[in-house]
């Protein structure tokens, strides 16, 4: 838990999938990172040029910009284990205890 996380979540509009992805991500981050993260949610319908810049195809797409390496996680982030792996975060032992 040394460096601060910079996360960008690309979504398309206010859909149930978008809501799910944001909730899943917030939950995981709060459990694992506390307040040590910055999250930007980008709606590609409003800012298609940002999607163009990052060459996003699928939504939701989460980009972990910091810490390096940059990594992309595609999907509504309902698979917590995969998200933790993708963010290089420790996987909690059964029982859900932290730290």
């Amino acid at each position: 838990m040394t460096s601060k996380f910079v996360l960008k979540l690309y979504v398309t509009g206010q859909t149930p999938r978008t809501e799910r992805a944001i909730q899943n991500l917030r939950r995981i981050c709060e459990q694992s990172l506390g307040s040590q993260y910055q999250l930007f949610v980008i709606d590609v319908l409003e800012q298609p040029h940002l999607a163009e810049q990052e060459r996003i195809l699928a939504t939701p797409t989460l980009i972990k910009e910091l810490p390096l390496p940059v990594r992309r996680i595609i999907g509504d982030l309902s698979d917590t284990l995969k998200v933790l792996q993708g963010l290089d975060l420790p996987i909690p032992r059964t029982g859900g205890t932290q730290e």
Binding site: A58, I73, G75, K82, V83
Partner: peptide, 20 residues
């Protein structure tokens, strides 16, 4: 660039980019 899949998705961004 590493890409991982974690849950359901669509290609809404592609469609948005094409329309734009």
């Amino acid at each position: 660039e590493e890409v991982m899949f974690a849950g359901s998705y669509d290609l809404g961004a592609l469609l948005a980019r094409i329309e734009s």
